[in-house]
Amino acid sequence: MAKIVAEHLKYKYPLSEKLALYDISFTIEPGEFIGIIGENNAGKSTLCQAMVGIVPNFYKGAYGGKVLIGDMEIAKSNISDICKKVGIVFQNPFNQVTGCKLTVYEEVAFGLENMGLPRSEMIDRIDYSLKLLDIYKYKDRNPFDLSGGQMQRMAIASIIAMRPEVIILDEPTSQLDPQGSEEVFRAVQNLSREGITIIMVEHKMEKIAEYSDRVMLLHEGKLIAFETPEKIFSRDDLDCYGVTAPAYTRICKSLGIKNKKTGFYPVTLEETKSLIGFSEKERCPYDQN
């Protein structure tokens, strides 16, 4: 399994005067779940695209530093080779449907046909990924007849079938309804359990806090911090970067409840529940009766 390493990555889109990414360096270990947060135009999507080679290979523009996936250097490789190692899923499920296939099953095959896989292997992989994403029952439907959540899971299945070591999700649920979002988040958790490295951009901070091993905070193209969710969301300066902590963390900040073991504020429902429940019992021991 491959490590992802960025070294002094800089990038400027053509026709733009400002750097979209400014001197970014980090290392992501195999199997990690990484959340990326930051306000709009902070460079989140650009960074994602730099890890699959869309930046700079598709957009061109000025590029400096490097990104390595294992021993493959992104800027020097073709997207068609990179995509065997790193897959990416975008916001809009609709615009990811190829439009040239009549069934979900064939749609998932698209990438595999391009890879030149033998037919029997294709079938194995398609079956596996449709089942993993829980959409096997829709395999004979027209891709455009699926709901948003189902379509997005099909997009993920299409990437998973290509067996990448890393999968990047750029706001995968922002255009879905609550049920569709939940379906996608559940699917992403499943992938994480399979040991795939996951990098997810998301505005729903509660979800970032719940799933991420570490969180990248980006602002104006710079990497401000890359830490555990507890440490990131316990910062006092989140407002300056246009992000907010999960509701649970905000409550605990106001109440001054920290997790004594870590020294940070809690970030998930479970953690908050145990801490608030505990301090309440301490404060009013008879309340229980």
Partner: peptide, 10 residues
């Protein structure tokens, strides 16, 4: 299939 707001969940 709706979830209440996060504070309400807590």
């Amino acid at each position: 299939y709706l979830e209440p707001p996060h504070v309400t969940q807590l």
